[in-house]
Nucleic acid binder design. Structure first.
Length: 1026
RNA sequence: GCCGUGGUGGCGGAACUGGCAGACGCGCAGGUCUCAAAAACCUGUGAGGAUAAAACCUCGUGUGGGUUCGAUUCCCACCCUCGGCACCA
């Protein structure tokens, strides 16, 4: 490496090129720098290569990466006054430059000069030149540089013949290592498939382990590297379990029904089912390449009629159990997707799928009564082994709140109503009542009074504002008096005025709130509307208390002291809660209630691409008050025998946003008869995509089974394999998918279909893989597909790279900088094994090292600390590369490697078996991409089904230990001792004596006496001196 | 505001249960080999000081306190990051 900064300076000086130096802010990494410069790493575009030979010495390469290819090309032509400039792809550049090594990005790893273009070659005067030192670079005028190098550049351009080579050519084995993932990976994938290495006999398996990962929805751009990150993490776990002797069932499928897929299909002008067919093919192709141990005999797609028939069946069960109902309410409506959304699907007031601002609309919709299960969803959290983070999030989302409903009666009208209060300690402070504008009671209160018009106008205004999203929830403290009073409030004889206020939420509690001086909102509302306030809680500080009394400040703290009612005076706010609730309940003024934040699951979607909701409505029956369920006259579910309700192929499948789905335009679909034979109509809405994925884990084992079209899930298989042992997925689904997933299982349990009431025993939340600090998304254009990287580095190296980034739970930042480093390591392993297998050591050689590795790995795997396992493997290679290593140690290493790099591990394990069998057959690595299975032995023994190595503890006993010697807690020396000699009194004495004699220690002990000596056997000695 | 998570070199990260801070890797620097590259291999790499060179010394895990022979780890207070929730009465 000669591309030093100073050399570059010298070069520029020599050429007379003017430059400025740019010092990068401290702490900026090369990545930060490149980002700042605005260069996109993943630019698929072409770049211009200029080779600059310098004074017969070393060569610099200048890479110009234009953002806008066409414009820049012309600019380059102009500058150089040439007719033609050829652009090369990165691969071509590699070939042309001979830089055919791991790091293929033209901007990274290139020796010598790097020239990075920001945006436009034409407009951008300055370019940044950075020579190896990422902390500073030169800022040079483009023209100056090109002018100085013109003769050379011209010469090079005229001479260089950039040949067109395909990507696969770049993967040709390098002569040094001979490692070619393009050869071995498809080869072993084919062998595993042929041998059924990952296929489990679902009925006979003795040790079942269901390893599930959240299936992807087939998006437009294909499987991205974030999916692969999650899948690899889950797969490593599954592979480890298999090595431990479990029969691991690891299925995969596609969540291809729903708005997201439909929106994309619409965008590209393709029919949803056509898009599904195309993306299915692509996804399964990609999923085959990422090296996971999928069971390809048990795939499912949610849009497959044989699947969604049973999604509809679940709807029917919900209806029969009284858990599906129609409700009219203000719902979230996405104007772009032209459909309603559940609360969970609205993020920051925007549509979860498309980011459009969500509007409020009053519509009648299908709901699932998930709130009925709120308590169970909460209680069961205690018995499942899910990550705490997810549990907490669910807990918060369910939002259980305990309190009381205080009884009220409207004066003169006699209407009774209740007011929810979760902090009733300050009930004596309540001086007025506020009611939500949407509350039905409002109309009754003002009917026929002089307040009627103004109140109803106010209500209309607030409704309008909320609809238009112009209701500022932070600031609005508007309200209006209804003219009514609550009579004799909790027996105090006081009448409290009833107001309508925009800030009250109709859906929470009773939609009516008792207001006091000890609630911030009420406080502000009262001040604005000149309502009385009566503080009853005061801080201990006299001055502060006076301020509270004068209503100068708002106050509510747990250590405040209550003054009223008299019987509780002197109690602290936090200790008064229980007694006060007891008092109010006993006196009959209130009753205990529990409220939840969780709302019912809005299930209908006015779209095309989903399972039609299997319901029929008969207006005649409705009129006569007949129906399948008493509370829902006119409604019948499609009988189980008549399922499936097939989604018809229609041409006008685009959503119109008129409150009805596209199916509503098709009488041939919706015209039917009710069970009594009257003409009736089918429901034309489809169900939410989250219903599709709320039960898929139940289906996987039964896919392809004899009665797959007769039952949603086979009873025996379900009993054997479920609940899921380990479920891996993203934390972002904590309140969406994971809540519905649990809910559906609970319902099916209560209906007697399942013996368990939780779908997954374990859940692991993987972190998010981001791209240079930003979330990968199509809109940002930074979605990375694994294909490209698999082509360049191989699946094994990519898997290792992803798992080495850090703990899987934390996610990571995908950058292609260090990936070449991992490929280098895989190359190193390749050479290592070639050498070791050629000349294996004695049986015990390397066993100590491999034992240490196995111990570390055994420890790390359950915690998914894969990064440290990989680190331990690197240490093993480093420690033994120049030593003799026996076959046992080699095998141990390969077993640990296998979950991460399944192909290379298999490759060398098979060679190892041959060596062990003293066979003279030398394995020829194929040079074609076609897998050659001819030399695959019939009695194929895959490394992936080998038992996890046992640790030989005797070996470790013989090892020397390092004892740390400290003086006053500061490490001054270390001494080596045999582990066996550090034990007991004798060991202590020996160790201390040796420590004292150590020059570095004695120096610090000189002239001072140790008042205390701490000895930890075999680990540490600490001399405490004054 | 509430709930949760985290803060360690140039970067990703490591450190068992309170016991050598910075494993492993990336990057960078120097070297070997090369006509020259690439690859490979070797060496160095927290900061500061000291020295001809070493040995060595001091500081250092967001900030300030505390507990301890000893603190990245435990306790208290604060600051910041990133998630999630939020007029929930």
């Amino acid at each position: 490496m000669t591309g030093t900064f100073e050399k570059l300076r010298k070069y520029l000086d020599q050429k007379g090129v003017k430059y400025n130096e740019l010092q990068h802010p401290a702490g900026e990494s090369a990545e930060d720098y490149h980002r700042a410069v605005g260069c996109k790493w993943e630019e698929q575009g072409k770049c211009l290569l200029i080779k600059v030979k310098k004074d017969g010495q070393k060569a610099f390469y200048i890479y110009v990466l234009p953002a806008d290819k066409k414009g820049n090309l012309d600019a380059v032509k102009n500058l150089l006054s040439v007719k033609e400039v050829k652009l090369a792809t990165r691969e071509e550049l590699q070939v042309a430059t001979g830089c055919d090594y791991g790091e293929l990005s033209p901007l990274a790893g290139a020796t010598g000069l790097r020239l990075i273009m920001d945006q436009s070659f034409l407009d951008q005067e300055n370019i940044y030149m950075n020579a190896g030192d990422s902390t500073k670079s030169f800022v040079i005028k483009v023209k100056d540089l090109v002018e100085a190098e013109k003769p050379l550049i011209l010469e090079i351009l005229s001479n260089s013949t950039i040949s067109h080579q395909s990507i696969s050519d770049t993967q040709k084995p390098t002569p040094e290592s001979g490692y070619s993932p393009a050869d071995i990976e498809p080869k072993w994938q084919a062998v595993w498939e042929k041998e059924g290495t990952y296929r489990v006999d679902l009925t006979k398996a003795k040790n079942p382990y269901y390893n599930l990962m959240m299936f992807p929805y087939p998006s437009a751009e294909g499987l991205h590297v974030g999916n692969m990150y999650a899948f690899t993490a889950a797969d490593v776990h599954g592979r480890f379990k298999a090595l431990q002797g479990y029969d691991v069932f690891e299925p995969i499928g596609l969540d291809g029904f729903g708005i997201h897929s439909e929106n994309f299909a619409l965008k590209v002008g393709r029919r949803p089912e056509e898009h599904a067919a195309i993306s299915e093919k692509n996804f399964y192709r990609q999923l085959h390449t990422i090296g996971c141990r999928y069971d390809w005999a048990h795939t499912l797609e949610t849009y497959d009629p044989s699947y969604y028939k049973w999604t509809q069946w679940i709807f029917v069960q919900m209806f029969k159990a009284g858990l599906a109902y129609r409700g009219k309410s203000v719902v979230n409506f996405c104007p772009k997707c032209k459909t309603v959304l559940s609360d969970e699907q609205v993020i920051d007031g925007k549509c979860e799928r498309c980011g459009t601002e969500v509007a409020k609309k009053e519509m009648e919709q299908w709901f699932f009564r998930i709130t009925k299960y709120a308590q169970k969803l909460l209680d069961n959290l205690a018995k499942i082994d899910w990550s705490e983070k997810i549990k907490t999030t669910q807990e918060n989302w369910i939002g259980r709140s305990e309190g009381i409903n205080i009884k009220h009666k409207v004066k003169d009208l006699g209407i009774e109503f209740e007011v929810y209060d979760s902090i009733p300690q300050t009930f004596m402070a309540q001086t007025f009542i506020v009611i939500a504008p949407e509350h039905p009671l409002v109309e009754k209160l003002v009917k026929g009074t002089k307040y009627e018009k103004s109140v109803l106008d106010f209500v209309a205004k607030i409704k309008r504002k909320k609809k238009q999203k112009s209701f500022n929830i932070e600031k609005e403290k508007e309200g209006i008096f209804t003219g009514r009073y609550s009579e004799d409030y909790v027996g105090t004889g006081q009448n409290l005025p009833i107001w309508v206020a925009g800030f009250v939420i109709k859906e929470y509690g009773t939609g009516i709130v008792g207001s006091s001086a000890h609630d911030e909102r009420d406080f502000a509302f009262a001040k604005q509307n000149n309502l009385p306030l009566k503080p009853v809680l005061f801080p201990k500080d006299k001055k502060m208390a006076e301020k509270v009394r004068k209503l100068e400040v708002f106050y509510r703290e747990p250590d405040g002291i209550l003054e009223e009612p008299a019987m509780f005076a002197g109690l602290r706010w936090d200790e008064a809660r229980g007694p006060i609730i007891n008092y109010l309940v006993k006196a009959g003024y209130a009753e205990r209630v529990v409220n939840y934040h969780l709302r019912d699951w809005l299930i209908s979607r006015q779209r095309y691409w989903g399972p039609p909701i299997p319901m029929i409505f008969c207006s005649q029956c409705a009129h006569e008050g007949r129906g399948e369920r008493e509370e829902m006259p006119g409604w019948y579910c499609v009988s189980e025998a008549k399922l499936l309700v097939l989604l018809p192929k229609i041409d006008d499948y685009q959503p119109e946003g008129n409150g009805k789905g596209p199916l509503a335009k098709h009488p041939e679909f919706y015209k039917t008869t009710c069970p009594s034979g009257h003409p009736a109509v089918r429901e034309t809405d489809v169900s939410d995509t989250f219903l599709d994925s709320a039960w898929y884990e139940l289906r996987y084992p039964s896919v392809g089974s004899a009665e797959a079209d007769k039952v949603p899930f086979n009873k025996a298989l379900t009993q054997k394999w479920l609940p899921v042992d380990m479920y891996t997925g993203g934390a972002e689904h904590a309140v969406l998918h994971l809540m519905y997933f649990r809910f559906v299982t609970m319902v099916l349990h209560d209906l007697g279909y399942l013996e368990f009431d939780e779908p997954a025993k374990g859940f692991f939340a993987h972190g998010l893989l981001v791209k240079e600090g930003a979330k990968m998304s199509k809109s940002k254009g930074n979605v990375v597909t694994p294909d490209e990287y698999i082509n360049r580095y191989g699946t094994d190296a990519l898997r290792l790279y992803l798992m080495f980034m850090g703990p899987v739970s934390e996610g990571g930042d995908f950058r292609d900088f260090s990936m070449s480093g991992m490929r280098r390591w895989v190359d190193r392993v390749w050479r290592y094994f070639n050498a070791k297998l050629e000349n294996p050591g004695k049986e015990d050689d390397g066993l100590l090292e491999s034992n240490k590795l196995v111990i570390k790995a055994t420890d790390d795997f359950p915690n998914r600390r894969y990064n440290t396992t990989i680190s331990a493997m690197m240490i093993f290679i480093n420690e033994t590369i120049n030593k003799q290593v026996g076959k046992r140690a080699l095998k141990n290493f390969l077993v640990v490697l296998a979950p991460f790099a399944p192909h290379i591990a298999e490759e060398f394990y098979q060679r190892l078996l041959k060596v062990a069998a003293k066979s003279n057959v030398v394995h020829n690595s194929n040079t074609t991409n076609k897998p050659d299975l001819s030399n695959c032995p019939s009695s194929f023994r895959s490394i992936h089904l080998e038992p996890w190595p046992k640790v030989d503890k005797n070996l470790l006993k013989a090892e020397k230990v390092t004892v740390v010697v400290q003086v006053n807690g500061k490490t001054r020396a270390t001494i080596e001792m045999e582990a066996s000699k550090t034990a007991g009194k004798a060991g202590e004495k020996e160790a201390i004596n040796r420590a004292r004699r150590h020059p570095r220690v004695s120096k610090h002990l000189q002239g001072r006496s140790a008042s205390k000596i701490i000895y930890l056997e075999g680990r540490l000695i600490n001399f405490v001196v004054s």
